[in-house]
């Protein structure tokens, strides 16, 4: 099964630094190098929030998990947020088994994720920090 990767930079200026990566198909031994290549150019200082929309992801093996782990580290090393959303049940099961992504925000759907990000943004604004 191939892997389709769609990267979208958030155009809303309030969400600058937010990137969404939608994955469709299979993230496995054969396709994980493609994701690794696609993510490389995203690892810039301005990246604040990286969202993986996994609604179309039907298969995930440890090769793919390793690429996600690297992405997670890129974000958390710079105090950013690494988010997975819309996980199919077999994907959630695999992630749970290897516990490879501790402290990662995993959401069942976009509504949950948007609520979380809005709350986080509110905290930042109220904290008086520059965003």
């Amino acid at each position: 099964m191939p892997l389709d990767i769609r990267v979208t930079q958030d155009k809303d200026p309030r969400n600058s630094g937010r990137v969404r990566v939608a994955l469709d198909g299979s993230l496995d031994t054969a396709t994980s190098p493609d994701l690794e290549k696609a993510l490389q150019p995203l690892y810039v200082r301005q990246l604040r929030v990286l969202v993986f929309d996994l609604a179309g992801l039907r298969f995930l093996s440890s090769a793919g998990i390793r690429v996600l782990m690297t992405a997670r580290k890129e974000l958390t090393d710079h105090d950013g947020s690494f988010i997975l959303t819309n996980l199919q049940p077999q994907i959630a099961k695999v992630i749970e088994i290897v516990k490879a992504l501790p402290g990662v925000s995993i959401f069942r759907n976009d509504a949950e994720m948007d609520a979380y990000l809005a709350a986080m943004q509110k905290k930042v604004v109220e904290g008086g920090q520059a965003s």
Binding site: R66, A100, L101
Partner: peptide
Amino acid sequence: DLAVPPEERTIGGLGMVLVRAL
């Protein structure tokens, strides 16, 4: 060791954890 940060774990180890579980 699943308590060790993932980036520091052995290469190839995750695969067998999954195989044993499934």
